[in-house]
Design a protein around this nucleic acid. Structure first.
Length: 643
RNA sequence: GCUCGCAUAGCUCAGGCGGUAGAGCGCUUCAUUGGUAAUGAAGAGGUCCCCGGUUCAACUCCGGGUGUGAGCACCA
């Protein structure tokens, strides 16, 4: 007779096997109603699951993340059922849970329209009202194949045929709809009430671009109306922060048809860029990098030698001149090796760290471009460290220290670490790969931070670590990287004389902290909602006069502040002060300096922060100190609540 | 690159079952010199993305292209 232990430690005895639903019922009617699934000895199960031995049981509701996941998965089934009721010819494929929601891929003769989505949503509501019982059943593989063949569901047949052996498969039925699924699912369709279909778009069958394209309908589902509303608000907020919109509104940059995927930086956007560049230059100098500059156009033969042409020929821009073919460089490393190759190098020269703010062009697929985040022309804070195998670990460790310090200065405390290891197609011995992977693992472990292993995703020449930032919306943006390369230096003839007088090929570490300036600035804009911290703001302060009478004082003040190295403008237009305040607040300028007769008389300024906070009047000196103090703190620990 | 949308004034967007277009903001001019998120009035401003086709007539319909958005695929 089962003795059930509940999460709070209390125990209940039952005189016969009980289902999860019955356990919930015995605790309370409210819980029984809310029960979506159960967790029995750690395993997620349906509420119909029968417990016949002593077990730890938790009732899963929409309040916990497990419950939400079950709810979303069931919502995907609900949507598939609705689609098949409305469009019997539509075939079902897969329908997993994703962050905040779910999707289901269908094969259908025509595209679903937004009107179709509305109809589907309505049908889903109807099925919720019907409150169909969701029943689990087991079928053999052959039975299942026969059933789906009979239904004309060729994709399901393909899925099942791909499942090895003769293991039994579980199915979930609700009314006339049945789907292959591991489960668990909600006990009845009446449990999934709060959802919204959000979009329809193409998606390749099995994620392979050689396959036919299916139609993916995305939806979001929540445990309560309130949560759904919060989610939709979050989407709105993300849209407001979209760097493409803010870039236009704040006059930072633009794109135009004649140069797809290439940025026209405006004065304000370029100011941000330059501030970041000079900051990085200073950081790199302090970390013993030597900055260099290499050509944009390099004979194609170099890219053939380096191995890039073989792999990326389609993604390289080329230029023909004087019967020679050049590639516009897609990366900087081959050029850096040319610099390394000048003069004979000794082991005493290693590690040699070369850095370049290298401008690169890549022909990115048209569909992948996205504002500043993915462009065809970009600049990397690129660097290559030439070293011995023994030096890999300490160089990687030093780099990580530098990277974390930089990220902190930019206000990013949440960094996600991923190690990508040997891919199937690779160069170099397994022993070499083993050592390199171990060196990276050791460096990761030394941080004490959690990291993720991504097997098989390394570059063909070596393993890599990628560093992603989590912005204030929780979105993950890959920026930094360090990659171990055993191959390229040798292929381009790099060597040094070792202690034993032998000729050896150096290991090269490719590394970048920000990645591309373009992308990084895009991330910053969205993270700060355009309200850049003072050290990055293109205009740090603006002086506003009340009437013409103070114009001269304002101009003098502006000059004095400029001479101190601040980025300050003045708005002396014949407008009311309220109008000016509004306009420059919307332009997200950190400090608004109001000057009227009172300020002129007392040689002061009235300081207002962009958030609306009044700092009162202060002297020129006091304001300089205040701004200097703000600037010197970079963006550390900043939470950009200001709009 | 693939699927489906979208492209109208500097910006944000209306609009017409085919008869060359409109708002708000911005811009210019005039009045106003006003103390912390929008002063008032007048005016200027458009090859309705590009190239073809249908038509008496195309910004509107059809075909192609380019750019762009969402998603997929890709990302040295």
């Amino acid at each position: 007779m089962p003795k059930i232990t509940l999460p709070d430690g209390s125990q209940r005895d039952y005189d016969k096997p009980v289902t999860v639903a019955e356990i919930a019922e015995s605790i309370g009617a409210g819980l029984a109603r809310a029960a979506l699934a159960g967790r029995v000895d750690g395993e997620l199960v349906d509420t119909s699951f029968e417990v016949n031995t002593d077990a730890e049981v938790a009732i899963v509701t929409a309040r916990d993340s497990d419950g939400l996941e079950v709810l979303r998965h069931s919502c995907a089934h609900l949507m598939a059922q609705a689609v098949q009721r409305l469009f019997p010819k539509a075939q079902v494929t897969i329908g997993p849970v994703v962050e905040d929601g779910f999707f289901y891929d269908f094969a259908f003769e025509r595209a679903f329209t937004p009107e179709d989505l509305q109809a589907i949503e309505k049908m889903m509501q109807a099925i919720v009202k019907e409150d169909l019982v969701v029943q689990r059943s087991i079928m053999s593989r052959d039975e299942a194949v026969a059933m789906f063949k009979d239904m004309g569901e060729v994709y399901k047949v393909e899925i099942i045929e791909g499942i090895p052996g003769d293991e039994d498969l579980s199915f979930y039925r609700q009314g006339e709809f049945i789907d292959l699924c591991r489960g668990p699912h909600v006990p009845s369709t009446g449990k999934s009430a709060t959802f919204k279909l959000t979009s329809v778009a193409g998606a390749y069958w099995r994620g392979d671009s050689n396959n036919e394209m299916l139609q993916r309908i995305h939806g979001t589902a929540w445990g309560s109306k309130k949560d759904l509303k919060l989610y939709l608000q979050r989407l709105e907020e993300a849209e407001k922060r979209d760097h493409r919109k803010l870039g236009k509104k704040l006059d930072l940059f633009h794109f135009q048809e004649e140069a797809p995927g290439m940025v026209f930086w405006h004065p304000k956007g370029w100011t941000i860029y330059l501030v970041i560049e000079s900051y990085m230059r200073q950081v790199q100098n302090a970390s013993h990098y030597q900055e260099i500059r290499t050509p944009q156009l390099v004979d194609y033969s170099l890219w053939e030698k380096s191995g890039h042409a073989a792999k990326f020929a389609d993604e390289m821009f080329t230029v023909e001149s004087d019967n020679r073919l050049y590639a516009i460089k897609p990366m900087n490393c081959p050029c850096h090796i040319q610099v390394f190759n000048q003069g004979l190098k000794s082991y005493r020269d290693l590690p040699l760290r070369l850095a370049e703010f290298g401008s690169c062009h890549r022909y990115e697929p048209s569909g992948s471009m996205h504002g500043l985040m993915r462009v065809r022309s970009f600049v990397q804070d690129d660097g290559h460290i030439f070293c011995t195998e023994d030096q890999i670990q300490s160089e990687v460790a030093d780099f990580m220290d530098l990277l974390f310090a930089v990220y902190r200065d930019f206000g990013f405390d949440d960094v996600i670490l991923r190690l990508s290891t040997r891919p199937q197609k690779r160069v170099g011995s397994d022993a070499l790969w083993g050592d390199a992977e171990q060196a990276l693992k050791d460096a990761l472990n030394a941080t004490g931070l959690p990291w993720e292993l991504v097997p098989g995703e390394g570059a063909f020449y070596g393993p890599k670590i990628e560093y992603s930032l989590k912005d204030c919306m929780g979105r993950i943006q890959q920026c930094g990287t360090i990659q171990v390369d055993f191959f390229t230096p040798g292929s381009l003839g790099a060597h040094y004389i070792a202690e034993d007088n032998s000729k050896k090929v150096p290991v090269m570490l490719h590394r970048a902290v920000l990645g591309s300036f373009e992308r990084f600035i895009g991330v910053l804009i969205e993270h700060h909602a355009g309200a850049m911290p003072a050290w990055l703001a293109p205009e740090q302060a603006i002086i506003l006069n009340i009437t013409d009478k103070q114009a001269k004082y304002c101009t003098q003040l502006q000059e004095s502040l400029k001479n101190k190295g601040f980025r300050v403008s003045a708005d002396l237009r014949n407008e009311k002060i309220g109008f000016k305040i509004r306009e420059h607040t919307l332009q997200k300028i950190p400090y608004l300096l109001v000057v009227g007769d009172k300020e002129v008389e007392s040689s002061t300024v009235a300081v207002r922060k962009r958030g609306g906070e009044d700092l009162g009047t202060m002297t020129f000196e006091d304001f300089c100190n205040h701004l200097s103090h703000d600037v010197s703190h970079f963006g550390r620990g900043e939470i950009s609540a200001e709009q």
